[in-house]
Design a protein around this nucleic acid. Structure first.
Length: 444
DNA sequence: TCTGGGGTCCTAGGACCC
DNA sequence: TCTGGGGTCCTAGGACCC
């Protein structure tokens, strides 16, 4: 918590629906619902006109149709949302270098890094009024709600107090008085499960939460969460505004209109998702080591299965192969409602090249898997090939490189030419037919 | 006509290593 | 001769956010 109110939170009002109304004048002043329009869709955003009928986000679209049959139900145009978001984020970055987007329609701005005469309440208020006008201009007529406070926590709560088109500045010193009467659910991180745990110990409001010792909170909701609640109940929040956060995972998932049972169909769907995920990986110039398969069964129970490769990959066939084998571990006979494929343990291969010193293939056998023992274990798995660290190889699309490690039916290759910058590390299926040795293994 | 899609963070147990 | 302790990695699941 700072001594002055210098953290700003902007939240564009009913963002997806507002973009639709902006682009289609006939929708203005009418209820608009953006979200899944299929049989199993849910609402992403409802315009304020639709909210008047009790429609809100996360509600099944079917229920929204019941409550507001005359609304326009739209699947959404993410390209338009992304573009509008980019314009607004660009404006924010022109105001302060410290901008932290939370999603397409929300961001924190650190006003300490902005150009303001001082940080009095009057001064930041005037600044925010001007900002709201400029948001309106660059977004083509959208409104945003702004909150300003001495921490991220307070700024976010403030922006919620006067929606839509609101502006609330919480003066320093007033934070705890503001919070005390509020429900604990205003605290970010307190969802239905935590709220229920707290209710069981008689806590409904922040004032009541304040009375609970840290040890007790840790006992009830766990170490990390308990400690956080203890601090936030006292408006203690020192989290900085962080402009760049690196991606930790990339995933694709689909819910089907009807449950799928056919195993061959499920495999084909997983293959396609592997293709989509790796395409996004390559666009982001990333590769990853851990492949996760997500399966939601007919009864809505959800399970995940994951496997970690010896090295990072962005290869569609490798991810597909791993995901398919994970699918084989799941009993899908009752029907599958959702499938998903994700990749985590991400590596940026340019950084990887800068920070590793294994340019010489002779050094490469430092890796845990890069030894003769794993190579021979692999040989028994894949009888056709023996991949030995240091062996020169050639790949149809990735060019020439050398084997860096191998194991579990996967060979990790460090490529040095072709379509990829030098030093790129990729894991490929050991039986990948487009991967060929161009020099004999040094040993058998 | 129950319950999206893309993420993040946390916990807990087991393997493995020193 | 009945039993260490810490650290890290991996896996699975769950809560939560927009």
């Amino acid at each position: 918590m700072r001594a002055e109110s210098t953290i700003l939170h902007v939240d564009l009002d009913a963002f997806f629906a507002a973009v639709e109304q902006r682009d289609k004048p006939s929708l203005r002043g009418k209820p608009v619902v953006v979200g899944g329009v299929g049989g199993r869709g849910v609402v992403a955003t409802a315009s304020y006109e639709a909210r008047a009928f009790g429609v809100h986000s996360a509600m099944p679209t079917a229920e929204a149709r019941r409550r507001c049959p005359n609304a326009a139900f739209l699947a959404g145009r993410f390209h338009a949302y992304r573009e509008t978001s980019r314009a607004v984020m660009g404006l924010l970055r022109s105001i302060s270098p410290l901008v932290e987007p939370l999603s397409l329609d929300e961001a924190f701005v650190d006003l300490e890094a902005a150009n303001l005469p001082d940080h009095s309440v009057a001064s930041v208020s005037a600044f925010a009024r001007d900002l709201k006008e400029r948001v309106h201009e660059v977004s083509g007529g959208l409104t945003g709600s702004v909150g300003i406070g001495s921490s991220k926590f307070i700024a976010k709560i403030a922006s919620d107090l006067d929606k839509p088109d609101g502006l609330v500045v919480v003066a320093p010193g007033n934070e705890r008085d503001l919070l005390r009467p509020m429900q604990v659910t205003v605290i970010p991180g307190v969802g239905p499960a935590t709220a229920e745990s707290l209710r069981r110990i008689g806590v409904h409001t922040v004032a009541e939460l304040e009375e609970i010792s840290e040890d007790e909170l840790v006992r009830v909701v766990g170490r990390s969460h308990g400690r956080n609640l203890y601090l936030l109940a006292r408006a203690e929040d020192d989290r900085p505004v962080v402009p760049e956060r690196e991606t930790k995972s990339i995933s694709v998932e689909d819910t089907y209109d009807t449950d799928h049972v056919d195993a061959r169909l499920l495999q084909a769907l997983v293959d396609r998702q592997a293709g989509k995920v790796t395409e996004r990986l390559r666009k982001a110039r990333l590769s990853g080591r851990t492949v996760t398969l997500k399966v939601r069964l007919h009864d809505f129970s959800t399970l995940t299965r994951s496997a970690t490769l010896p090295g990072p990959t962005d290869d569609a066939r490798t991810v597909a192969r791993v995901a398919r084998s994970l699918l084989g571990d799941v009993d899908t006979s009752g029907g599958v409602r959702l499938l998903g494929v994700g990749v985590s343990g991400l590596a940026d291969w340019i950084q990887d090249d800068l920070f590793t010193d294994t340019e010489d293939p002779d050094d490469a056998d430092e890796g845990a898997w890069a030894d003769d023992e794993t190579a021979s274990a692999l040989a028994s798995l894949s009888r056709r090939r023996l991949w030995v660290p240091g062996m020169d190889v050639e790949h149809d699309s990735h060019g020439r490189g050398w084997v860096w490690g191998s194991g579990r039916g996967v060979v990790t290759v460090r490529f040095e030419t072709a379509d990829t910058p030098p030093g790129r590390v990729l894991s490929l299926a050991a039986d990948d037919p487009s991967l060929r040795p161009v020099s004999p293994p040094r040993e058998e």
